[in-house]
Amino acid sequence: MSIDETALTNGELYTVVTNKAGKGKKGSLVAMIEGTEAGKVIEVLDKISEEERNAVEEVTLDMASSMRKIVKSCFPKASRVIDRFHVQKLAYDALQEIRIKHRWDAINEETNAIENAKADGVKYIPEVLSNGDTKKQLLARSRYLLFKSGDKWTDKQKKRAAVLFELYPDIKEAYSLTHSLRMIFLKNTDKKVAYTKMARWFNDVTESGFKSFNTISATFYAHYPEILNFFDNRSTNASAESFNAKLKAFRATQRGVVDIEFFLFRVAKIYA
């Protein structure tokens, strides 16, 4: 099973519970409940017989405490698996936070240089780096390459990354941390080995001194067992994200949602 949330109209959230075996087709949708309040969702899911709920072996979810509470209450015998992509996203966000900070510094630096040039009555000419970017452009254009593994960079991205990492060694170190975390999930199939490597990763984060990464480390520690459960069956919440995409596509064909009750009725007829 997967549990996730999605917005239908005006940003109103619904909790969506899906069956992975349905493959996004008929039989995929178990429940679609207005709101994300744990108590309300539990009340609805408890209408499913206890025998059927106890038969659920595994549920994938994100790190929201409400989702955790729902699964723990409604599917007590199921293994809870934190989606690895949500885990990795936290690391990517921390990396981008460092890049964005440097970008604002570069913008302020350029703005001050322009003002000084005007005061001196000369034309401002920005410094151009070896790859043809200015500092401001370098930091803006490096956003997407930091999400990718180095072996997937284009030649231009490799040149840009080399310049970026030379100028900003902290971005290089933060990128290395995110890449190491990605490799732990990608390369390991043994839970015990993954446990050891994750512990080493925590040590590397502590030694780096990055405040944003230390915050992530604390978050990971609170969900450690459920994150490691990924290595049992390598289950992710990808099926839930895919189903949410189907809902959004269906909503688009209807030019939005005017009558929510009728929309949910149609979704149930197609996917439940």
Rank of each mutant, 00 (worst) to 15 (best):
L145Y: 05
S2M: 08
T236Y: 03
A106W: 02
D190S: 06
D105N: 12
Y221K: 15
V87P: 01
M67D: 02
D232Y: 12
S176T: 13
R68N: 14
V71P: 02
A162I: 02
F262K: 12
E51R: 15
T111Q: 13
K197V: 06
I48L: 15
G11I: 06
I260M: 14
R68Y: 12
M198Y: 04
L95E: 06
K156F: 04
L139N: 03
T219Q: 08
V163Y: 00
K135N: 09
A38L: 04
E5W: 07
N10E: 12
V267F: 05
A162S: 12
V56L: 04
D259C: 12
V122Y: 02
E43Q: 11
V128T: 13
G132F: 00
Y271H: 05
I260V: 15
W201M: 04
A7V: 11
K123F: 05
Q96A: 07
D155K: 13
S49T: 15
A94T: 04
E110M: 11
K47T: 15
G22F: 04
A140C: 09
Y144R: 10
A194C: 07
Q96M: 10
F75E: 00
A238V: 07
K172T: 00
Q88M: 15
G22D: 03
A55P: 00
E226V: 05
E109P: 07
T111Y: 07
A238H: 14
N203W: 06
S142N: 10
S66K: 08
T189N: 15
E12L: 12
A64S: 15
F210N: 01
S176R: 14
R255D: 09
A268R: 15
L146Y: 02
K20E: 13
K47M: 13
L186W: 11
P169M: 08
E166A: 10
K246S: 09
C74L: 03
T111P: 00
C74E: 01
K211N: 11
A7H: 12
L29M: 04
D120S: 15
G150P: 05
S65R: 11
H223T: 01
N214W: 00
A245L: 13
I3G: 03
H223W: 12
F265H: 14
